[in-house]
């Protein structure tokens, strides 16, 4: 396949960036999207040009590092996949492909397509954990019986890989799907109930401070989330937050 790429190039966090056109030929439909970019970068390297910086790590859809807003959608046109799992067969010979970084005030661009998602880490540090003793006397996970229904919901929420596609897709750059997944995975379990109130209050406070937008329930996040995190989690967080603010 021969493709025309329009890629966001930006030297560093301070300088302004712009879209730059590249042509790439002999792309195999079996390549992943990141492999296609690897080929482009090799060509750029050979020509002595600065390769395109992009995030990646596991390349198997579990780490959440690869980002990219491709042709107007987070992780491209496919559903339920990350960019490393997106195949070039989803495109046609001669296509023009726009490749942009995830855009949000809370995700500043570091270079080209690489954005700083440490705002997610800071939200996690504000409450996305349980305080248990891990020094040798850990309790067996199955010691406390948990309803299957709740365990399943919690596990579904826990599949969030923190990729930020929800923020990138949301017209308001809201982080509600991510934060609600992190709140829900604990809220549903007895181990998480102990700190439930502080957790939701502190994580939402941090989320607001980081400059994410407000949820308007458009549902773009749920559609674009590679892990199928459900909007039910946002409703659960809204409930948790209401009870927590009334009670504490």
């Amino acid at each position: 396949m021969n493709l025309k790429l329009k890629i966001w190039r930006q030297k560093n966090a301070r300088e302004a960036g712009k879209m730059v056109d590249y042509n790439i030929s002999n792309v195999s439909p079996d390549m992943s999207f990141l492999e296609m970019l690897d080929v482009l970068n090799e060509e750029l390297n050979n020509k002595g040009e600065d390769p395109v910086a992009f995030d990646h790590d596991c390349r198997e859809g579990i780490c959440g590092m690869c980002s990219l807003f491709i042709n107007g959608e987070a992780h491209g046109p496919d559903r339920g996949v990350t960019t490393c799992q997106l195949h070039m067969r989803k495109f046609k010979d001669g296509d023009t492909i726009y490749i942009e970084p995830f855009r949000a005030k809370a995700f500043p661009v570091i270079k080209d397509l690489v954005v700083d998602r440490s705002s997610f880490d800071r939200i996690q540090q504000a409450g996305g954990f349980i305080s248990v003793n891990t020094s040798g006397n850990t309790i067996d996970a199955n010691a406390i019986p948990i309803k299957k229904h709740d365990a399943d919901r919690s596990f579904d929420a826990a599949t969030c890989i923190g990729c930020g596609a929800c923020v990138a897709s949301c017209k308001n750059a809201s982080a509600m799907l991510f934060v609600s997944a992190k709140v829900s995975q604990f809220a549903l379990l007895p181990q998480g109930k102990v700190e439930a109130h502080e957790r939701v209050l502190n994580m939402v406070k941090k989320m607001d401070e980081e400059g994410f937008g407000n949820c308007t329930n458009t549902g773009a996040c749920e559609v674009e989330c590679p892990k199928g995190i459900s909007l039910e989690n946002i409703a659960r967080m809204n409930r948790e937050y209401l009870f927590a603010s009334v009670k504490s």
């Binding site: 107007g72 046109p77 949000a104 017209k171 400059g211």
Partner: peptide, 15 residues
């Protein structure tokens, strides 16, 4: 919350 807009955005695919 999104100071720099996307050059190409297709919100009609998900909302």
């Amino acid at each position: 919350a999104r100071p720099v807009k996307y050059a190409k955005n297709r919100p009609e695919t998900n909302t």
